[in-house]
C-alpha cells in the first residue's frame, strides 16, 4: 500500500522484485536506515505456511545494531516492531526477531535456526 504513496522508491522496489518481494525490500531498507544495522537478514518464511506462492506474510529478521546496546530483549523487539508497524498492520502476520549487538553477534555461532513449523492456524 505504502509504495503507491511514495512513487520515488517504487522503481527501486520494482527492480528488486525479481529477487525479493516488495515487503521484504521495505523491511530491509527500514531496518537498515533506522537501526544503522551492521548485519541484517530478512528471511521470507511465508512458504512454510498455508499462503499463496510468493506471499509476504511470515518473516524472520536478524538485526545486529549498536542501537541495541544496553536495551533488554523486550525493548529491542519493541523497537523493531515499532519500525515495522505499518507492515505488521498491512499484511505481515508473523515476525520473528533476532536482535543482537555487534559484540553479541561476533561471539555467537551466527547460526540462525528457522522458525517452527506451521500448525495450520493461519487465517483461521
Amino acid at each position: 500500500m505504502s509504495i503507491i504513496l511514495r512513487p520515488g522508491i517504487f522503481n527501486i522496489h520494482r527492480s528488486m522484485s525479481s529477487m525479493a518481494g516488495v515487503v521484504e525490500s521495505t523491511i530491509r531498507s527500514k531496518l537498515l536506515s533506522t537501526l544503522d544495522a551492521k548485519h541484517l537478514d530478512v528471511i521470507n518464511e511465508s512458504y512454510m505456511h498455508n499462503v499463496p506462492k510468493g506471499a509476504e506474510t511470515h518473516f524472520k529478521v536478524v538485526v545486529v545494531s549498536d542501537k541495541f546496546d544496553g536495551l533488554p530483549l523486550i525493548k529491542r523487539h519493541r523497537l523493531v516492531n515499532d519500525i515495522l508497524k505499518e507492515e505488521l498492520q498491512t499484511g505481515v502476520h508473523a515476525l520473528s526477531i533476532v536482535a543482537k549487538t555487534p559484540q553479541q553477534w561476533e561471539s555467537s555461532d551466527k547460526v540462525i535456526e528457522s522458525s517452527p513449523n506451521c500448525k495450520g492456524g493461519f487465517g483461521k
Partner: peptide
C-alpha cells in the same frame, strides 16, 4: 496462544 496446549495451531504457540 493459537489453539490449546494439547493442540496448538501455530508453530510459535507450540514452541
Amino acid at each position: 496462544m493459537k489453539g490449546v496446549p494439547e493442540a496448538p495451531r501455530c508453530g510459535f504457540s507450540n514452541a
